[in-house]
Design a protein around this nucleic acid. Structure first.
Length: 313
DNA sequence: ACCATTTGACCACC
DNA sequence: GGTGGTCAAATGGT
């Protein structure tokens, strides 16, 4: 599950990680200073630049650190034959969703009765700030994670039941850098209710990547990956898919489209090649005055508990 | 009253 | 059996 460094060179990557962590902490300190003097809207070019630096650090760290990540979702976890084994995820409330559930149990006894979705479409992001991603999330759980300093928070889409939206996310503060939060987006939004989310059109031109996005007329540089375009968003770590027809929930933006309208290709190989070929991180210089726009697309961490907010600045 | 969060309990997976 | 993911009652906020 977790990747590890080659046995013959275990120390160098770790040293690199340490250096990167330190660099990222320095960048965070600088960002804090800038934040105090500039404001918190993220629109200042200085702050934007710092965020990009942070993103670079985080990205590199994430690549190096994936083997140690406590929320690691490795591509190797993809288990195609588990696609149909997630009834509780798709319809967790339904009585029929838990085949393994005790049939005669009371309502209270049905707690935790579900089929855990082992693998699914997931996108891991690390964000230096807690920015509303435009979706409405409801927290449904919090768990302390073994060997992790900070608990993991579980969120589901607010419209899970009224619209059947399957999107969920897990948020956990990164141990090495508590300012950063690692958000794992699971599944894609099928709800139509969005706040502050701009128009986002997936360009499915056949000659290019089927996942190219265009952000209306304010965001047209197609070489930037949708996940990676924000100066706030730091890392798209890994992704794999299972039964979800679309790519990341946040890039679909189906507020104006039904689930069948997803423009992201469901083809897994295309998806993989897309993510393999894309640059690890690219920070768009174009979104600086549209921070809210981009954050609504790319950055998770909408709802946080008090301890999360302690680190907000 | 309604909605969101908290939190202990339950259960699947390893 | 341990860990992590989810449920749902209890609680709090508006």
């Amino acid at each position: 599950m977790k990747r590890s460094w080659p046995e013959n060179s275990p120390s160098k990557p770790r040293k690199a990680i340490e250096e990167l962590v330190q660099g990222r902490q320095f960048a965070n300190q600088l960002r804090g200073l800038l934040g105090k003097s500039i404001g918190d809207d993220g629109s200042a070019p200085e702050k934007d630049l710092v965020l990009k630096i942070l993103s670079s650090f985080t990205n590199t760290l994430s690549l190096l650190n994936s083997a140690e990540s406590d929320v690691d979702v490795d591509v190797s976890q993809v288990q195609p034959n588990t696609q149909a084994s997630s009834p509780c995820w798709d319809a967790p409330k339904s009585e029929s969703s838990g085949e393994s559930c005790r049939s005669n149990s009371t309502v209270k006894d049905r707690r935790g009765c579900y089929k855990r979705r082992k693998t699914s479409l997931t996108v891991t992001k690390e964000t230096p700030t807690l920015i509303d991603d435009g979706h409405a999330w409801r927290k449904y759980g919090q768990k302390p994670i073994l060997n992790a300093k900070y608990p993991r928070h579980y969120y589901r889409c607010t419209h899970k039941y009224d619209q059947g939206c399957q999107a969920a996310k897990q948020v956990q503060r990164i141990q090495e850098d508590p300012v950063m939060h690692r958000t794992i987006y699971i599944g894609n939004h099928t709800c139509r209710t969005f706040q502050n989310v701009p128009e986002l059109i997936l360009d499915s031109s056949p000659n290019d990547s089927p996942f190219v996005l265009s952000f209306d007329d304010t965001f047209t540089n197609k070489h930037n990956h949708p996940f990676l375009s924000s100066s706030f968003q730091s890392v798209v770590k890994q992704e794999h898919r299972e039964e979800m027809p679309a790519a990341a929930d946040d890039i679909t933006h189906n507020n104006q489209s039904s689930s069948s309208d997803y423009l992201v290709s469901p083809d897994q190989t295309a998806l993989e090649s897309f993510y393999n070929s894309m640059p690890v991180l690219s920070s768009s210089p174009m979104e600086s005055d549209n921070g809210n726009v981009i954050s609504g697309i790319l950055v998770g961490s909408a709802d946080f508990t008090d301890d999360d907010l302690l680190f907000e600045f």
